[in-house]
Design a protein around this nucleic acid. Structure first.
Length: 508
RNA sequence: GGCCCAUUAGCUCAAUUUGGCAGAGCAGCUGACUCUUAAUCAGCGUGUUGAGGGUUCGAGUCCCCCAUGGGUCACCA
């Protein structure tokens, strides 16, 4: 490690401490209360006439330091809160006081024992009788501080804001920005609420392979890896779908999985190469029932984690209360772009209609992709309030069941909130012969080199041939849900250690 | 991948317009101060201005190139 002069001073202190017989990174720690518990116990005792003093040993990171002659004020912070320490030379002794002043810096983890009391200004504090270093910091954490300038303007100093540092050094971001810590508590609450919701409805949580010999269940390019001993290429999964539906064949009627998907595609404010997905499959249900479950699930999660169905996202106030708006895809496109996809059964015809309307249409795209592109460009951004878009073209939905009496359309819906696609669901195709022909259809539609082409999964077809119960399936991007519930516009804000390009270290 | 913007002290930012000694606040260091919380007071600037090259008497500033980040377009269930 190379240190700046500032950092070298801290390293020198570490050596000086050891010379003075003080271990800067001791092995044993004592702690009698969390900071929150000590504060609560003290406040309770204040109400009693003859309460015994609250003796406490607290631990935390030093966040502020105000030394004035023979007393020192400092705030320490643990996961539960902050409390002021009051160090007085009379209480801890001259030698100990001197060492504290010499060796303690903002950012250090320390342990302090003493009695809870209130200062003259009324702040709950710990009158320290003894203290010790738990872990010396070398790099300085920015200490957020608000200072009023000469012109009366309040300037906030030294809060970490460079996005590159915040993402690359998430630990520093968390240490310095309390709202980031709070965000990940909300995230954990969201995941917990999702689990609770499904568990209460008799869903079984399962774990299926991440390393897969054949990828599928979505139109996306995979990451490829290799098993050395087996001499076999493997793919990181792009969805859980095909494995979870095998479980329905096996008699697990309601299953779900929360885990990581990997897609080898562009990154953006709403795409990270790895992201957290929830998928569930529910036997003896169709997509209409799944819509109802979806509304209930998302609004329940919001209620449990935020205490409300009304969320603020960007400039929008969004009401998650069921039922959500439902728009048929075909009708939505008629209303917004003025094209009836039913009148254009071939890619060529649709392409011509789009060009005539002045819409951009990538030449040579299959019909389904053109429809999908129109939907993404013109419908998706306008769906701020929760909206289900339903009934999709068959050729972009190879795993969904056709609508009765309308073989070109499948029972599929996507849910949108805040102008973002949030979830995707359908009545699952359970006819193995139809499924096989869908796979073959796809093989013809996509070029051989197109990695989005779903490879034929023979084992999946075999499973389905044993008889898969009619079911509804559902997938939701958990990161995007967290973005909505925490009002963050970038997926990187809600992921710990989001992927960034590797720094060029060639010169070191 | 294309285009635009950014990168200056540990952190947040000036100085770039018109090339002329690289500066503040916070934190840090030295000293004073026994109830502060923006502590206060007196001092100290700690830097390969993202990397490399060029123009120039002189470059943080202008030019080229590279890297990283952000935005946007392309791409993308």
């Amino acid at each position: 490690m190379e240190f700046s002069e500032l950092e070298q001073q801290r390293v020198d202190k570490i050596h000086q401490m050891r010379e003075a017989g003080i271990e800067p990174y001791p092995t044993r720690v004592e702690r009698t209360h969390s900071i929150m518990a000590a504060r609560a116990q003290f406040e309770e005792s204040e109400g009693e006439a003859e309460a015994a003093p609250i003796q406490a040993t607290l631990t935390g990171r030093m966040r502020s330091l105000r030394a004035m002659g023979k007393i020192v004020f400092s705030h320490i912070e643990d996961a539960t809160g902050t409390v002021q320490l009051f160090l007085r030379i009379n209480d801890i002794g001259e030698e100990s006081f001197k060492q504290s002043r010499e060796f303690f810096n903002i950012g250090d983890h320390i342990q302090a024992s003493g009695v809870m009391f209130r200062t003259r200004t009324g702040e709950i504090s710990l009158r320290v009788q003894s203290c010790k270093m738990l872990a010396k910091s070398i790099l300085t954490l920015p200490a957020a501080k608000n200072v009023e300038g000469e012109d009366g303007e309040v300037v906030q100093h030294a809060t970490l804001s460079d996005p590159e540092v915040r993402y690359r050094q998430g630990y520093a971001d968390l240490a310095v920005n309390p709202d980031v810590r709070e965000l990940f508590r909300v995230r954990a609450g969201v995941v917990q609420s999702l689990r609770d919701f499904l568990n209460e409805r008799d869903f079984l949580e399962v774990e299926t392979p991440i390393l897969q010999p054949i990828y599928g269940g979505a139109a996306a390019r995979p990451f490829v890896t290799h098993h050395n001993q087996l001499h076999q290429d493997l793919f990181l999964r792009i969805s859980f779908e095909l494995y979870l539906k095998r479980l329905l064949v096996g008699g697990l009627d309601r299953v779900y999985e929360i885990g990581r998907d990997f897609r080898n595609e562009g990154v953006s404010f709403k795409h990270n190469p790895e992201f957290t997905q929830l998928e569930f499959y529910m036997a003896y249900a169709d997509y209409l029932q799944i819509m109802e479950v979806t509304e209930q699930m998302v609004s329940t999660v919001a209620q449990k984690t935020l205490g409300t169905h009304i969320i603020q996202f960007d400039e929008h106030e969004i009401d998650l209360t069921p039922p959500w708006k439902r728009i048929e895809l075909r009708q939505g496109l008629i209303d917004v772009v003025g094209i009836d996809i039913d009148e254009h059964q071939t890619a060529e015809s649709l392409q011509a209609a789009m060009t005539a309307k002045g819409l951009k249409a990538k030449p040579g795209s299959p019909r389904g992709k053109l429809i999908d592109a129109m939907m993404g460009d013109y419908l998706e951004p306008s769906f701020i309030q929760p909206t289900f878009l339903y009934d999709y073209p068959r050729d972009i939905s190879p795993l969904a069941k056709s609508k009765p009496g309308d073989p070109q359309t499948v029972e599929r819906f996507e849910g949108f909130i805040g102008g973002m696609e949030l979830c995707n669901a359908f009545t699952e195709l359970n006819d193995p012969l139809d499924q096989e022909s869908r796979f073959l259809e796809l093989g013809r539609t996509y070029e051989d080199g197109d990695e989005e082409k779903n490879p034929m999964d023979e084992d999946y077809l075999r499973a389905m041939s044993y008889g898969m119960p009619p079911c509804g399936g559902f997938g939701i991007g958990v990161d995007r849900l967290v973005m909505l519930l925490t009002n963050r516009r970038s997926i990187r804000e809600v992921i710990l250690f989001p992927h960034l390009r590797e720094r060029d270290r060639g010169e070191e």
